[in-house]
């Protein structure tokens, strides 16, 4: 398409340059009229007709026209300002909540159910599929199949507010057995819950659980991202910072400094040691 486009552009440009030359034969009106007919009308109609036919032929394969048979795995991805809530629903009825990092089994079609409770977002991981909007009041479905294992970068593609630029997403595709093992581990509390008890106590005492869930503790808020296995993720804040204890502490101190417009309040009044303890505990939740 690009090459054909380049040729057409060059053709038109050369024709214009030729027409500008001072010494050349004048065309007759009939010849000029024929040029309009063939080059201006017939040629584009033919080329565009062919191109359109090809695209329409592609479309059902990329996005099925009708509901396919019930998929083995459904993942609900919900866009929030400015993070992703991810819930896995397996065929055997298990429901596992997670956030900001999408795991997929290689070679298995996965149905994504895309929604949003606040503003319009758009789910886009280029190597997996084209984008699909997440619109309040609707659930859009998109079926994707990861063809190979790997880490794919994605982002929110619909302008969704101040930190739209910092609403990114990582998808990790792995072999089905590895995926099943990961999902089972994700569903259970992290073994790290018991470590760093002072961090865990501070987390609970400061009321973090009103917004965040950490399985295995009393924290079961649904307003912010699920943190049950935060330490196992590759990045923090919807792929804004590389994951580290220092980064977690920095985020807690002032989320809006990292992500302007983030809804989480700043906890800069906490003593550094207390923040560090929380960060150490969260970082250990693998």
């Amino acid at each position: 398409m690009v090459i054909a486009g380049a040729f057409i552009w060059l053709g038109v440009l050369l024709a214009y340059l030729h027409a500008r030359r001072p010494r050349r034969a004048r065309w007759s009106d009939q010849a000029a009229g024929r040029l309009i007919l063939w080059a201006g009308a017939v040629f584009p109609t033919t080329v565009l007709g062919a191109l359109l036919t090809y695209a329409l032929w592609l479309m059902p394969g990329l996005r099925p026209w009708a509901e396919a048979e019930p998929p083995g795995l459904v993942v609900e991805v919900t866009g929030h300002q400015f993070w992703w809530e991810i819930t896995y629903r397996t065929a055997d009825g298990a429901i596992v909540a997670s956030a900001n990092e999408l795991r997929l089994p290689v070679g298995t079609p996965v149905e994504l159910r895309l929604a949003s409770p606040d503003v319009i977002h758009s789910f886009w991981i280029p190597p997996l599929a084209g984008k699909m909007d997440m619109i309040p009041g609707r659930v859009n479905r998109l079926t994707v199949t990861a063809e190979r294992a790997g880490v794919f970068e994605g982002a929110c593609a619909e302008y969704c507010g101040t930190s739209h630029a910092l609403m990114r997403l990582v998808a990790v595709a792995e072999e089905p057995e590895a995926f099943r093992a990961w999902l089972a581990a994700e569903a259970a509390p992290s073994p790290g819950v018991a470590a760093h008890p002072e961090g865990r106590d501070a987390f609970v005492a400061e009321g973090c659980g009103a917004c965040h869930t950490v399985r295995g503790t009393e924290a079961d808020g649904r307003v912010g991202p699920d943190l049950s296995h935060l330490g196992a993720r590759r990045s923090l804040g919807a792929d804004t910072l590389p994951l580290s204890e220092a980064a977690i502490a920095r985020f807690i101190a002032d989320p809006a400094a990292v992500k302007p417009g983030a809804l989480m309040p700043a906890y800069d009044m906490l003593p550094d040691t207390r923040r560090a303890a929380i960060a150490a505990w969260l970082g250990g939740l693998r």
């Binding site: 038109v12 024709a15 214009y16 030729h18 027409a19 500008r20 030359r21 001072p22 004048r26 065309w27 007759s28 009106d29 010849a31 000029a32 009229g33 040029l35 309009i36 080059a39 201006g40 009308a41 040629f43 584009p44 109609t45 565009l48 191109l51 359109l52």
Partner: peptide
């Protein structure tokens, strides 16, 4: 959306034809 390219193309080639049939 593809179809609208056709009248646009006609307009571009009308200019080209006028230039070719005249002396620029």
């Amino acid at each position: 959306s593809e179809a609208v390219a056709i009248p646009t193309g006609v307009q571009i080639f009308v200019f080209l034809a006028t230039m070719l049939a005249g002396r620029v």
